[in-house]
């Protein structure tokens, strides 16, 4: 059962060694009520397989699609999620918090 952040980083290494394209997402800042603490990881491969979490499932879908771009481009990016508008139900945090998620490629 891979559920701790430690196992997730080990898995990222193994995926990369298997030759998969891999990106790592890290919660870098949170404001208000955020479901996962700073330092939480989500890893993603080029096919959209993922392990770990950066929220309670609220923004993972969006992070995964951004991560696939990052795997292609190789350029890291900082994503911001909050509940600012009516599209919040789709890629927002229903808890009302705001988070910054850094997505980088494992080279």
């Amino acid at each position: 059962m891979i559920s701790t952040d430690d196992d997730i980083l080990k898995q990222a290494e193994m995926w990369r060694l298997e030759g998969r394209g891999v990106a790592m997402a890290t919660v870098m800042e949170t404001w208000g009520s955020a479901p996962r603490p700073v330092g939480s990881h989500l890893i993603i491969d080029q096919d959209g397989n993922f392990l770990g979490s950066v929220s309670g499932g609220c923004v993972e879908g969006s992070v995964i699609s951004e991560a696939i771009d990052v795997i292609e481009s190789g350029t890291a990016k900082m994503l911001e999620f909050g509940v600012a508008d009516e599209t919040a139900w789709r890629v927002g945090l229903s808890c009302g918090g705001k988070i910054h998620v850094y997505v980088e490629k494992v080279l």
Binding site: L9, R16, L17
Partner: peptide, 14 residues
């Protein structure tokens, strides 16, 4: 992240 850094990080934890 460089794979070598990730490998080193995992080795330190182990």
């Amino acid at each position: 992240m460089d794979l070598r850094i990730l490998t080193k990080l995992n080795a330190e934890r182990a």
